[in-house]
């Protein structure tokens, strides 16, 4: 009996030691095809595939959590999860408070989508509140109309509240493709940010090294490009 108890205790201890390596991945779950909640109620999308593969390569046990976009960085700082994997563009401002891994998605183009090809991009342009796109629109001299969710920004163009919507090209592409010619890209795409990277706490250097190595290995053997193509189609920029 004693032996049995001891054995249980030992396995429990071993379990605890192993479980120390649980890395919690925080995502938004509302930004397809980067990340979204699929119809089964699970986190899915490009980042789900990338995250799972990275964890496998870095030999980490990973767990997924969702968090509101607004408080995604404060909650990382507070330690509620260890990695942000939420289509977050690497920017200087963010880099001041958190660390980024190397990018796992090339610098993304942002684009305007409107109902007509001759839309006035200096008119009313909608964007999601607190994104780099919103900042860009405000500085471009256009009239910025901000919505809480990406869905509403597009609805605003459809119903004429805004002339155009400005967002990630990869987010807009499937919507434009499925709109039966109602929506179209207008003007030149704009390069914003330094690609999408994993966000980490500045003190978590060890984890960052592991994940960087894993991303590099995925870049080297082409598996990352394959995933990009799977989720974003063949025309998207790759590594």
């Amino acid at each position: 009996m004693k032996k049995l108890l001891l054995a249980t205790a030992l396995t429990a201890l071993a379990g605890a030691a192993m479980a120390q390596d649980v890395v919690r991945l925080g995502t938004e779950g509302a930004y397809p095809p980067f990340n979204f909640i699929n119809d089964a109620g699970e986190i899915a999308g490009f980042e789900r595939d990338v995250g799972d593969e990275l964890c496998k390569r870095a030999e980490l046990t990973c767990e997924w959590v969702t968090n509101e976009w607004d408080s995604i960085i404060p909650n990382l700082q507070s330690g509620n999860y260890d990695v942000i994997i939420a289509g977050m563009s690497i920017t200087d401002e963010r880099d001041e408070v958190i660390d980024f891994s190397q990018n796992y998605f090339p610098p993304a183009a942002s684009a305007y989508v409107a109902l007509a090809a001759d839309a006035d991009l200096k008119g009313v342009v909608s964007a999601q509140v607190s994104t780099i796109q919103a900042g860009y629109v405000a500085e471009s001299g256009a009239t910025l109309l901000e919505f809480a969710t990406p869905d509403e920004t597009i609805a605003a163009v459809r119903n004429g509240e805004a002339v155009a919507v400005f967002a990630d090209k990869d987010f807009l592409a499937p919507i434009v493709a499925e709109s039966n010619g109602e929506l179209m890209f207008v003007g030149e795409p704009v390069q914003l940010g330094g690609g999408v990277g994993l966000g980490l706490r500045e003190s978590d250097t060890e984890l960052k090294e592991k994940l960087n190595a894993a991303i590099q290995s995925m870049k080297d053997d082409g598996s990352l490009n394959a995933l990009i193509e799977k989720h974003f189609g063949p025309e998207t920029a790759k590594f």
Partner: peptide
């Protein structure tokens, strides 16, 4: 929606919370 970034007290607080991450 906020028009031309003209919003109420909470809108600006949200803006700063987002920019300063604090």
């Amino acid at each position: 929606p906020a028009f031309r970034q003209m919003g109420d007290a909470l809108y600006y607080a949200n803006y700063f919370a987002d920019k300063t991450f604090n």
